[in-house]
Structures are given as structure tokens and as C-alpha cells.
């Protein structure tokens, strides 16, 4: 695997004329030391030189993540984008406390993340709703698990309204559409008031119309609740449409290549000039802009 020479800004594009590109990330491999994180006072989540290797069935080791550092500000919407297999899920699972890093540290609000908790909400790609529970029961699962259901019972209805599922309270997951199910999964995590909501390609399995619909819902919820969001996605447009900051990762070993800030005010127009220019840059970085992308960057 070769890291291509990156002339300016570490991103292989002319960053001087593109103020949204974070020039402090000079090269992918030094992004860590010069993490363009917001000043530490607003920081809610800190990922500090995290490394993780897996051993596959044949005994080969796969370096899923090498020396990844990232800082997320309170209320920020961060997207992680990168080709398949570059360790996005691995990273998100470690943030959630579902996996432990080999070295490095993950810190939430000054506290080391050691195990999963309701503070770190997680929305899986699909199929994580409990099939034996109704929509209503799924949404109240966290409240019940923590023994606060009685006090907060009224919130369940609010959230069902918020995600537009009124009338489907008593439906079971297999009786609703995939898009509806993902909205339930988002509500189920949000009702716990997590400090950070982690979303692992929550719309990956959905068609583009449903996806746009949920993106708007997600933005609406984010603005209303001001929850910090970390979204893993394959979809460049989705990342630009939603995030304050986009993290670009490269595979084998999984590393952060750079950051892109998106300063377009909401609501964003998917066809706007700034939008398209950022889009072009990202595609450029991912080597997808031209007709034949290098195979290892295929998404």
C-alpha cells in the first residue's frame, strides 16, 4: 500500500483557495499530533492514539486502526467517511465501549470509556430493534432497563411523534418499513439523552428518498436536542449535508487522512455552489473524482 505524495494541506488539493480544508492536517500520518480539534474546553469526546489489530481465521493480523486521534466538541456533528474496511465501525464500537483499544485511550467528559452505557447511544446499521417488542416498547427499552420508565413514560409518546410514527406504537419491527425501523432505533437511543450519539451507517440499507427523509429528521433532532453526533457514512452528500466536520479515513492500516469543516449554514442546499465544491474536494481526496478510481479506494 502506498501513501501518495500529498502536495498541499496533506489532502492532495489546493487548500489555499479552499478555506474549509483544515491545513493543519498536513499528512495523514501526522494528523494525530496536529489534530485540528476545537479548544479543549468544549471537548466532550477525546480519542487519543487508538490502535486496534484483529486476527482473522487464518491467523493473519489485520491492522484495523493505527494511531487514530480525534476530538469532538460538545454539540458538534462529526461524520466519518472512508472506504470499506478502513476501520470506521471498529472506531465507533470502541467509542461506544463495545470493544477495547489495544493501545491508546478514549475519554468521554474526562472519564475513560471502559464499557457501554446509555451515555453513548449507538444506532446500528440495521436489525438491532428487538423483534419481540413493539415500536413503543423498543423506544422505552432504555428507560425500563435503567428503571426510570415510570417517571419518563410521557416522553415515549413525544419521541414517537417526533419521528412521525404516531399510529404505529403497537406495531412490531417486522411490520414497519426499514426507514421507519431506523427512525425507531434513533429515537430509542436519543430518549436516553446520550452525551454522544454514534450512528454506524444508519441509512446504509435505505433507498435515497427515505435516506433524505431521515437525514432531515436527524438534523431536526440534532438542532432540537443539541446532542453531539458521530456519524459513519459511505455517502459523501450525506456527510456534507449533515456535518460540521468530516473526518476522512484511509484503509490498511486505518488512519485519519484529514478533516474538512463544513461551514455552510443550515438548511443546506444539496446543489449549492459551496456544497458542490466541498463534494468535489472530498471525491478528489478519496480518488473518486475521476473515472477510474484506484481500486483500493473503491467505496
Amino acid at each position: 500500500m502506498s501513501v501518495q505524495p500529498l502536495p498541499i494541506g496533506g489532502l492532495g488539493i489546493d487548500a489555499i483557495n479552499r478555506p474549509h480544508i483544515d491545513t493543519s492536517a498536513k499528512r495523514a500520518d501526522i494528523a494525530r499530533s496536529e489534530n485540528p480539534s476545537p479548544s479543549s474546553d468544549g471537548e466532550i469526546l477525546k480519542i487519543d492514539s487508538v490502535t486496534r489489530t484483529y486476527t482473522d481465521a487464518e491467523g493473519n493480523t489485520v491492522e484495523a486502526l493505527r494511531d487514530v486521534s480525534l476530538s469532538v466538541k460538545r454539540g458538534e456533528f462529526v461524520s466519518i467517511i472512508g472506504s470499506s474496511g478502513c476501520g470506521k465501525t471498529t472506531l465507533l464500537r470502541m467509542i461506544a465501549g463495545l470493544d477495547a483499544p489495544e493501545s491508546g485511550e478514549l475519554v468521554l467528559n474526562g472519564e475513560r470509556i471502559a464499557r457501554p452505557s446509555q451515555k453513548l447511544g449507538y444506532v446500528f446499521q440495521q436489525g438491532s430493534l428487538f423483534p419481540w417488542q413493539t415500536v413503543e416498547q423498543n423506544i422505552s427499552a432504555g428507560l425500563k432497563a435503567r428503571g426510570v420508565y415510570k417517571e419518563r413514560k410521557a416522553d415515549v409518546k413525544t419521541y414517537i411523534e417526533l419521528i412521525g410514527l404516531t399510529g404505529f406504537e403497537k406495531s412490531f419491527p417486522h411490520q414497519i418499513s426499514g426507514g421507519m425501523a431506523q427512525r425507531v432505533a434513533i429515537a430509542r437511543a436519543l430518549i436516553n439523552n446520550p452525551a454522544v450519539l454514534l450512528l454506524d451507517e444508519p441509512m446504509g440499507a435505505l433507498d435515497s428518498l427515505t435516506r433524505a427523509d431521515i437525514q432531515c429528521k436527524l438534523l431536526e433532532l440534532w438542532k432540537k436536542r443539541n446532542t453531539t453526533m458521530v456519524l459513519v457514512t459511505h455517502d459523501v452528500d450525506e456527510a456534507i449535508f449533515l456535518s460540521d466536520r468530516i473526518v476522512i479515513m484511509t484503509p490498511r492500516p486505518g488512519k485519519i487522512q484529514g478533516f474538512i469543516s463544513v461551514k455552510i449554514p443550515h438548511p443546506r442546499h444539496r446543489g449549492g455552489i459551496e456544497f458542490l465544491s466541498i463534494r468535489r474536494d472530498i471525491l478528489e481526496v478519496l480518488h473518486l473524482a475521476r473515472a477510474n478510481p484506484a481500486p483500493e479506494y473503491m467505496i
Partner: peptide, 16 residues
């Protein structure tokens, strides 16, 4: 495993 993981990220403990 996903069901257990989902439950744990919702704050569930062993009895749940």
C-alpha cells in the same frame, strides 16, 4: 450479539 450490544448501549445490565 447485536441484541445484547444494543441493550448495553441503552444502559441495560445483566438482569435485563
Amino acid at each position: 450479539k447485536t441484541y445484547f450490544e444494543a441493550a448495553r448501549t441503552l444502559g441495560a445490565k445483566t438482569p435485563y
